[in-house]
Write a protein that binds this DNA or RNA. Sequence first.
DNA 1: CTGAAAGCGCTAACAG
DNA 2: CTGTTAGCGCTTTCAG
Lengths: 329, 329
Amino acid sequence: MADIARLAGVSKATVSRALNRSPLVNEETRTRILELASSLKYTINIGAQNLRLKQNRTIGVVVPYDSTTRQHLSDPFFLSMLGSLADALTERGFDMLLSRVDAEQLDAAAMPFDTGRVIGLILIGQWRHHDQLNGLAARHVPIVVWGAQLPQQLYTTVGGDNVSGGMLATEHLIAAGRRRIAFFGDINLPEVAQRYSGYCNALARHGLPLDPQLRVSVSFLPEGGDQAVREIERRAVPYDAAFACSDLLAMTAINTLRALGKQVPGDVAVVGYDDIELSTYFHPPLTTIRQPIRAAGQALVGALLAIIDSKPAGSLQLPTELIVRATSA
Amino acid sequence: MADIARLAGVSKATVSRALNRSPLVNEETRTRILELASSLKYTINIGAQNLRLKQNRTIGVVVPYDSTTRQHLSDPFFLSMLGSLADALTERGFDMLLSRVDAEQLDAAAMPFDTGRVIGLILIGQWRHHDQLNGLAARHVPIVVWGAQLPQQLYTTVGGDNVSGGMLATEHLIAAGRRRIAFFGDINLPEVAQRYSGYCNALARHGLPLDPQLRVSVSFLPEGGDQAVREIERRAVPYDAAFACSDLLAMTAINTLRALGKQVPGDVAVVGYDDIELSTYFHPPLTTIRQPIRAAGQALVGALLAIIDSKPAGSLQLPTELIVRATSA
DNA sequence: CTGAAAGCGCTAACAG
DNA sequence: CTGTTAGCGCTTTCAG
């Protein structure tokens, strides 16, 4: 900037003003400076600017990962979420600092905030780390989490409406004439627990019994679908449908069902969750519960910026939607 | 820092030294300062430190996207790559600034560098933007690209060995007794072109004719597999195998083959590319060419840091590997 | 071993 | 309209 000032025969202050399009600077001087700057390919040093302005337009996006199961990068759902966040942040002129942290050491997630690198954090995935997240919020780290709303929650969440998602899926299967509906998912995870309660509600509403033997606890890893099917077969309980807590789970489950000689949806109807892009192109195309990814990115960013602005930002539940395709016909 | 200095009864300089573990500071003073700092949850402001040190430990990772086809976020391969990069960068103490840029305006990718936010760029995906990439390199933007090595290339690439990948796949199919092998992919993309040339080599080596009718040009979008199969059926050329340029393509192709009543691998053997995690759990498990993702992240980061250090960093081709599963049995 | 002082690149009073 | 000056939070000579 000093160079430009010298070459333009003005002071650094004027250059700064010109570059920031201050109305205080003469039209003519301004264009001269701007041209000089662009011919020298000069751009303001954002670090210095941030320091001076005590501002910062970078948001930290954290993907917690489970070091034992690597339960994080298998699912295309995350990638879509990342994309949606990138779009929402870009749109509002923010940069995105991406980090992965061990889910057991979630405090580490706050480092970019503590060191002033970012002004707030978006966490993709709540898992079972409610307490650690509360801890961060108690420290006044501006944070928004993609996940379920829980009692005594100090942090803000944005998530799909899991209860109604679970209901939609289950009622759809019931409407399709299914009576013995298996549930695949780990209810220790808050989101899955809510989907399960939606499932229970739907059964109750239609006077169907809740058989605990029909619930199989599996992780979100791709092998989960296979495991779930094999487990329920081992239990030898009759079932004519399955509600899987992710599309990936549903797809791998369907593959195993087929391998075991079952027809989908003939013998077993299947509904997934998320509506990842591949679901449409799967064979047969997968019936699923759509999570509104675009809206999710917008909502997460909106909520975080509100918090940073110290405006109250309540937790949010985004509507989910049943997408009927062929696996439940 | 001024606060800590005051509370510890020392100068800012001493605090700085203590925090940076300088040997110049008295053991006792140091621990006092360190304790004070941690009790106040103080952390050095990285922005200010960077400014003063004229350093920066942030790398920009850029995912170009095609605004018309959104040819970017459908494929789990990218997510794995992102994860691998995140790991490699974290390991070496670098932060990752993630951005998406319109592939038609790749110059924009350099912005975080021009403004001093990052010290170098990693681009995931070369697509057909060789010239723009050369332009960036000519401007001395430190940059490494995941993609194919091309003639007259000013930038550094790291990529899988596509020619040998194409050969491995094709020779495997030939060894399995297939003679009419379709190729699914857009050879306008350098990586795909190289895989195609591997495919041609393999055919030639075994004295098999190269039938241009067997090559179907489709994008990497998930619907590509479906389109490819329908196109080749429309052409009514006989084929007994297909080599698809991504696993996603292979999977959606298999679904469509099945929908058309063809057996896989009975009627048509299929080989994919990338070895994404889902491939193992697909039904039938997918034969594919593995790209060494972990090594890729390491290599990309390593090459970029070398360039930043103004050490010469030649382009690199990582070995690919044939993973035989059930779709080619 | 410690402190005073200068300065990284930028912006914003304040004074012309 | 423009320049002078101070200072964002940090590190590092240079003197004690």
